[in-house]
Nucleic acid binder design. Structure first.
Lengths: 179, 179
DNA sequence: CGGCGTTTTGAGAGAGCTCAACATCGGTGG
DNA sequence: CCACCGATGTTGAGCTCTCTCAAAACGCCG
């Protein structure tokens, strides 16, 4: 069911113009006018906001199949920057074409809303997980949410997901290994 | 623009059955079948998930105008509990009626998607803010995002929003007052 | 006046962060 | 084959900040 709906949205971009982004490339910047909607076909794009104190907030790590900056469809300009975290290929559709397609096709619109609803759900859960103060509790909550520890080599990604340093996660994992 | 769109969704619930919830009442529990969609007309309802280690994750503090558990529209059963944090009035619409209305009315569907997109954006930002380790940085990021410190008497709400203890926030505010 | 919730401040403990050193592993090139 | 390199994993030590528990000052309202 989920697969079918996600496919619906991807299909909307089938005839779209494609663009290759070398790693590190900036796709758009905060304040820029929104002209197109982008689908990540491969690679990873980060949506970033910078704070005055110099912190970098990575609002979204958009991977294959994700639509970039969903809210931009309903805003005249971007509220964050988009940078390719690794080489990526994006499909671009004029914003109005995207919106018209949503209006014209109820099934597509439903799929879009469903993916947005799930994204919201996931982001809310992540926010709560990160408000837990102990690494142990964060890991527990994350695992309970249906996530699984990946193979060695990708543990740092988990640390980033949990909002802790890799050392803290490594120590927690070592602690659990001992039991 | 935003007001108009939010009103569209509220209006969908105009003829809906209304339900008063005394504070503390449970509206639904995890795993229960989704039969209706709920709009919060007044009061506040918390969406809660419990972890095995006993932590309570408050996924959403839904206030006036919010649709409860948006993703439930696309799921057969709930993934969290809903409890009235204070006395609330909810409008309930059969799930299928809700979905059919979305499919039939493109403007409504657009408003729904827009509100979901904004919710996602907000939740992602909150998640990032909570991954900052110092209270000072969290407060800065929160203020920069367009939020303002409320009047005395509601500072604890801000502490909850930032995911820190009230004491930590009070101290940070005192620190800033001194400068 | 007497509660009750919020704000304020103190002191100590605990946990994560930071910096640092070192081990491991896979790939590259001599 | 082996040396080298970069990224990941591991562990130690000290610092800093938040959390926790406590106590007290306010402020509002019945």
């Amino acid at each position: 069911m989920i697969m079918i709906m996600q496919t619906l949205i991807s299909r909307l971009f089938d005839g779209a113009f494609r663009q290759s982004l070398p790693s590190g490339t900036t796709m758009f910047l905060t304040g820029a006018p929104v002209r197109e909607m982008f689908l990540v076909e491969s690679g990873e794009v980060h949506l970033i906001r910078h704070t005055a104190s110099g912190d970098r907030l990575i609002l979204h790590r958009a991977g294959r199949g994700a639509v970039l900056a969903e809210a931009s469809a309903y805003s005249p300009h971007y509220h964050c920057d988009a940078v390719a975290a690794e080489a990526a290929v994006l499909a671009a559709l004029p914003k109005q074409v995207f919106l018209d397609a949503m209006s014209a096709d109820a099934a597509l619109s439903t799929a879009w809303a469903a993916s947005l609803a799930r994204a919201t759900q996931g982001a809310r859960l992540r926010a709560e997980i990160r408000s837990l103060s102990r690494v142990s509790a964060r890991l527990d909550a994350w695992l309970e949410a249906g996530n699984a520890l990946p193979d060695k080599g990708r543990w740092q990604d988990v640390a980033a997901e949990l909002g802790v340093t890799r050392e803290a996660l490594y120590r927690e994992l070592a602690r659990r290994r001992r039991l």
